[in-house]
Design a protein around this nucleic acid. Structure first.
Lengths: 250, 250
DNA sequence: GTAATAGTGTCTGTGAGACACTATAAA
DNA sequence: TTTATAGTGTCTCACAGACACTATTAC
């Protein structure tokens, strides 16, 4: 706001919306999209979202939209995360009127079935590689790309993956989340060592659990008290190309 | 926006503003603040900012406000950087009306004198440590903290510092920017090695330059083609406390 | 001379990646 | 048995931090 105050009657009115990029880390990384019924961009895929109400914060609007479309309650459910991504405010991004959209990044371990009613029938899950190749409505393609990069980066330097993993998880499950979100294969042995060596990342519950398709019983962990990963868990692509060349494959 | 369109006449009107957190990396990290003349928060320090016009993008509004207050043109001048930070939209963040503010992070190598006119007379530069201890207007204290953390993080994994350093710079100057923004001392020898070993970070112009207070002539560099620092240049604080304990001081 | 900056050399410890290996369970 | 998962051991290379050292300039 201006430093000296202003005439409250003299400001251009804006519509403020939230758009939700809900990503699900199953085997691969998927994004929830909705097929538009009306112009503009009728028939195109778009992000779910809606207006911010006059009496709710932007944050609250994002949580409400997420719950309305999917039933997910980011604040209360394990395995769900919601955070602000960025704000998109080009003059002509919506041909009908001046709309400023605050995009949110949602992350979920599973792909919840879109809630019945509203536009849920037109909702679908798409792998992010496919989604970014489609022509999405408005500037939603750019928003999805921003969201995917943010999600991948956050797994490097925060404990976000333990939030996704839920209340209790094995290191194998945590490993699987990293592989899904990053879209790469990670050596499980090195992954384990790194995770266990990072203070505050995970802590054992003391229990063990058998898996569904054979294999030794896994130690069960829960998320640790830390929020930041120090040092970060780097993506393989993040390594210097020079260093990668020098060390080579063996 | 909503997936199925909406009645353009039925939406709650918002005022949309931009707030600029302009940080200057001189010897230390400073932030530009303006003393408010009017209620609310009269007499308090606040961030410079203003309304987004009906016919300009949010991005354009941020650039305009920055230029109006300081004369800095982020797009055209070396040594200046401007990027979106986050959007603040609590219901009661402005007691007068519903205002959504998109905060921008500005970074400058110097502390430009605030432009004459408007509220420039009330503008002042403060070290960020001092600023975060003062009680700022609105939610501006939180915005400043977010901005400082973003700036520090960005120096780790992007070549932003070369943008701040300007068209031509010595490694000593680049080193000084890192020390100012991070607020730590860095071993110059290790810093040089790391910078020169990172592909795309800096490239020599072929010239040398003498410094003002003695010392050998320095090789002149310009910013390289890279945008991301791979691997990142980590802050000393980012090191694992465990590792730091183990290695210790010698 | 001193002070200040530029730049090189070298040692050490940590940790990431590669990969071989054992153990335990289901089918 | 095979297959899948859990978990350990170990080697190597890269790199960050510590710090000693030389070189070149202004004063």
């Amino acid at each position: 706001m201006g430093p000296t105050g202003y005439d409250a009657t003299e400001f251009p009115p804006f519509a403020v919306t939230v758009d939700i990029v809900l990503l699900a880390a199953t085997d691969t990384l998927n994004v929830m999209l909705i097929r538009r019924g009306l112009e503009p961009f009728a028939g195109r895929l778009a992000l779910p979202g809606g207006f911010v109400h006059a009496d709710e914060s932007i944050e609250a609007a994002a949580h409400r939209e997420l719950a309305e479309e999917t039933g997910l309650v980011a604040a209360a459910m394990p395995g769900v995360h919601l955070e602000q991504l960025a704000t998109f405010g080009a003059v002509d991004r919506d041909p009908r009127m001046r709309v400023v959209s605050v995009a949110y990044l949602g992350l979920s371990r599973s792909m919840p079935t879109p809630t019945a009613g509203t536009d849920a029938a037109a909702a679908e899950w798409l792998p992010v590689e496919e989604a970014t190749m489609r022509e999405l409505a408005f500037d939603h393609a750019a928003i999805v790309e921003t969201a995917v990069e943010r999600a991948r980066a956050k797994l490097e330097y925060t404990t976000l993956a333990t939030t996704l993993a839920g209340d209790e998880f094995s290191l194998g499950e945590l490993h699987q989340i990293y592989e899904a979100v990053w879209g790469v294969k990670l050596d499980l042995a090195n992954f384990r060592r790194k995770v266990l060596a990072t203070a505050g990342f995970v802590e054992p519950t003391g229990e063990r659990r058998v898996s569904r398709l054979g294999g030794a019983p896994a130690t069960v962990y829960r998320g640790g008290p830390g929020a930041a990963l120090v040092p970060p868990l780097a993506r393989p692509e993040s390594r210097s190309p020079v260093a990668a060349l020098r060390s080579g494959r063996r």
